[in-house]
Design a protein around this nucleic acid. Structure first.
Lengths: 186, 186, 186, 186
DNA sequence: ATATAATCGAGACGGTACGTCCGGTCTTCAA
DNA sequence: TTGAAGACCGGACGTACCGTCTCGATTATAT
């Protein structure tokens, strides 16, 4: 039995998250404002504050609903874990090198700095768990990697390398994918 | 021959960087404001804007002058690279777990998101180059690690793991240092 | 049917005008600042800028609401227009000679220089229309002054003499009232 | 015997006053700034502050050197004081109605509000003493006006009418000159 | 049917910080 | 000693958002 009164407008909720996704992509996390989201969504500020405690919470929700990031490349599985990782790293590098996507990763990191929820979801958001981790585990199962490899830490090291790269903003060397993988698999 | 006019006040410059360091440590990057720095430094806002284009630039300068971070643990050298790395990782974890230092790393990352200079200096800032990298190279020279190990990428993976950890805000497992190192050296 | 949204706060509006009146009297027009008014009124700057385009507009509104000037002496009516005018001029001179009121007239003129509304209202503000003009017209009706006397211009000349006096800041001669009236009625 | 050191640069002094005149005409008194004058004159701020205590003092000096106002119409002398005054008033009205001169009088009044020197000189600045006053005195001498007419107050009333007109910013009626004079000579 | 109560848009409110302009003082070097 | 250049502290400007609040309208139970 529900309490009396009007029910939450799904339309408004969706409009807010969609607007957040749009503005996040074009403006970046820092320049995102609640007022801007409200205006873009055609919603009043109060409606946002009623359901989310802060800007970062809205972003976290938009992240969950997959409105912030494009689809991620999947890790191929040719049986050669080294080659597969290199291929995947290469395709991710190419993805984020596209114009428009340039600051997206950095914006996501900035959001994670502010909000624990986003931080906790960062791995998922970057599409790690669903792609790399399972591939690594398969390689462990296949005996291509040590049985006692701490998968979580391994993945974190791999993705962490990416993150630092994104923060350093250096032009990636042509063989960076190969080197990154070789640093981990030697 | 210098151009005419009064010369830049070293006193003001130093006061600004010192104030930035103090506020960065207590307030974090997000709550840092130009007005706050000016007030804390006893300097007019205009003097800050005259020499730095943005908050992040001031922070970058403070970083260069080593006013933001405490001293880093050095990597021990017992000859056993694995044990040395584990010990170092452990001590760094303990360092940043101290109250007050809690958000410091995240603040630094947030600053790096905004400012390329800070990003480029992030490795140095975290004390990496001067400590880990040289120790790794020594291990390579001693034959404990492969001769073709891409040191830079290796270090980036190690530090990247830290960064992700800091963003995830999960309570570190007791053996996390050992696992992190084992993920890289297997 | 009103448009939606909260209604303008009469409390804030009143506080602004009252604060303006207070500060205008103590500081004068030049030293009046929007920030000062906001602080004195316990109101945010934005609330002032929302409703008034400029400092001079606030002053103009305060003028309309009679918050800037003290009450004016009335023109006596003994039947002798010359004596009545002299008495009135004398009392006005004494009024503005009081400490505190010293710069008030000049402040008002300064405001009028900046803002057409204030200029248009200057006569009213100085209490002219309601006092002198009617007395003059009575004198015309009584045949003491020519029937074709341009009353408006006559009053302007009289008040204009005051204004110039205020700008010149000369110590008024003892018989200045008598001389001013004699210059006009001869 | 002069004291040691360089002597005051007449060039700089002239440049300042000329720049002041130019900016006063184009920007008006309120928007006049010391920095603006210094830049326009190619002079350092310090040079201005060394010789003048305030903006209004510079303006006062520029006024003395006749750099602020155009030449004034002279009062004709046909023997008919009434007709002469009307003609003069009419020509002054036409002068200040020209575009560009629009705010000039108001700017002058604003300056007078701030600076006693300017106020004291206002009559001269408006070209009164040298033109109207002498013509009035001639009329008195010729018996066209009462011998005991307080000339100073008479002139002040006339000019004061102008000033109020300028502050009111009302479109002058076609016969305003005739009416202004008739208000004084009846 | 008719309260009752929660939602929604709009938008005013007290605040904080922004980045800029200018005031008036000072320091440096050249003339 | 003057002057151009220009850095310095201070203070006000006008703007952008923050997070809270008050409106009137709308919508959905609960009586």
């Amino acid at each position: 039995m529900r309490r009396r009164g009007a029910v939450r407008s799904e339309e408004a909720r969706t409009a807010v998250l969609a607007a957040t996704g749009r503005l996040f992509a074009t403006e970046g996390y820092d320049h995102l404002t609640i007022e801007g989201i409200a205006a873009e969504a055609g919603v009043s500020k109060q409606t946002i504050y009623r359901w989310w405690p802060s800007k970062s919470a809205v972003v976290a929700d938009a992240l969950i609903e997959d409105r912030l990031l494009p689809d991620h490349p999947v890790v191929p599985d040719t049986g050669d874990i080294r080659a597969d990782l290199i291929a995947w790293v290469q395709s991710v590098i190419e993805l984020v090198a596209q114009p428009g996507y340039e600051g997206l990763v950095r914006s996501l990191i900035a959001a994670a700095c502010e909000n624990p929820d986003i931080g906790a979801r960062l791995n998922d958001a970057l599409g790690i768990t669903a792609t790399v981790a399972t591939r690594i585990e398969a390689a462990v199962a296949a005996g291509q990697l040590p049985a006692d490899l701490p998968v979580e830490e391994f993945v974190r090291a791999l993705v962490g390398g990416f993150v630092l790269h994104a923060l350093e903003r250096t032009e990636p060397a042509p063989d960076v994918a190969e080197r990154m993988v070789r640093a981990l698999l030697h």
